[in-house]
Design a protein around this nucleic acid. Structure first.
Length: 119
DNA sequence: CTGATGACTGATA
DNA sequence: CTATCAGCCATCA
């Protein structure tokens, strides 16, 4: 019973990242770098991208993860970019071009969430 | 093994 | 605003 662990360290990190993504509230968003930090993996923003690229959980709110400052990470006009913008819009997140209007989820919005949705 | 690649970031020009 | 660049690290050819 030695050797090959059934779950690798990489699996643990991926799970931590998906968990962090699930904590992003509806109507708000978080950058890859922030997700990495929240998952206990500071400086590994690229790892977050890789995990989201291969994830299989259809309920994972991947669209709430943006590049730094609210930039959409996909090429402007791509199917992925349009899908992410559509999902964000459905949650009331204002966007323009290939980016979210605000660089960061405003505190005002966060408190509104608390008021309206008892978060 | 090496080198390229990418759903990244912050600094610099 | 755009363009490089170093730092970053798993994955693939």
């Amino acid at each position: 019973m030695k050797g090959t662990p059934r779950i690798s360290a990489a699996d643990i990190r991926a799970a931590a990242i998906r968990k962090a993504v699930r904590t992003i509230k509806r109507g708000s968003f978080m950058s890859y770098g922030e997700v990495a930090r929240r998952a206990g993996l500071p400086g590994r923003a690229r790892l977050v991208g890789q995990v989201l690229r291969v994830h299989e959980d259809a309920r994972l709110p991947w669209h709430r993860v943006t590049g730094a400052g609210g930039r959409i990470a996909f090429p402007a006009g791509s199917a992925n970019a349009r899908e992410q913008l559509r999902r964000l819009a459905r949650e009331g997140v204002a966007t323009r071009g290939n980016r979210v209007l605000v660089k960061r989820t405003p505190a005002t919005t966060r408190s509104l969430d608390a008021l309206l949705w008892k978060i």
